[in-house]
């Protein structure tokens, strides 16, 4: 049976190896010491974990490499087209990407707009946007939800917990 190839895992594995190397390089640049006399220094733990990350990343990458080799062999044996859709593990479903962008972009905007507009206002706007673009059919519901949440946040976090939220132009 042909083994499934997971390209995403390969990329992630490579990424892990790159991360490990970066950790090492930054450590060198900031002059972290591995062992000072008899005690582990500042670089001890980071380098060890970097080694762990690198090894695991390499394993992930290598395993997929083996799978690719295997499937190439099967291809020549089987004559079946092994690159069919079932074999490539679908990494991104369209809906997933949309959700991802909606949530992450809205959140980033909320943070950026927190100081100019005030955290409560930017949160309200963000929730309206997320509610709508994540699938609520009507704008009216989304706006109601947003405003309701905004008020609840105000009551809970501002009045009850007295958390000093960033205030914007409107003083909220």
């Amino acid at each position: 049976m042909p083994k499934k190839i997971n390209k995403a895992e390969m990329i992630f594995g490579l990424g892990a190896i790159v991360l490990a190397i970066t950790i090492f390089l930054i450590g060198q640049k900031t002059k972290l010491i591995f062992f000072r006399g008899t005690t582990p220094g500042a670089a001890f733990m980071p380098y060890l974990t970097a080694a762990g990350i690198g090894l695991c990343g390499f394993w992930l990458f290598f395993k997929q490499l083996l799978n690719m080799r295997q499937s190439k062999k099967d291809k020549t044996n089987d004559k079946k087209d092994n690159n069919t859709e079932e074999n490539k593990i679908k990494f991104f479903k369209k809906q997933d990407i949309k959700n991802f962008i909606v949530v992450i972009v809205s959140s980033i905007l909320i943070v950026i707009l927190a100081n100019p507009l005030g955290f409560l206002i930017s949160l309200t706007l963000g929730i309206i946007a997320m509610a709508k673009f994540l699938g609520t059919p009507s704008w009216r519901t989304s706006i109601l939800v947003g405003i309701g949440s905004g008020i609840s946040f105000y009551l809970i976090f501002d009045l009850f917990l007295k958390v000093p939220l960033p205030r914007g132009l409107f003083g909220i």
Binding site: G126, G146, L165
Partner: peptide, 30 residues
């Protein structure tokens, strides 16, 4: 789901701010 998710996101963002009164933490959470 969409409404629940949006509101929960709101709670998550404001909650992570409240930890240390820091927007940086919110960025980290994202």
């Amino acid at each position: 789901a969409p409404i629940l998710n949006a509101v929960v996101m709101g709670f998550i963002l404001i909650g992570s701010y409240s930890l240390n009164n820091s927007l940086f933490n919110v960025g980290l959470t994202i």
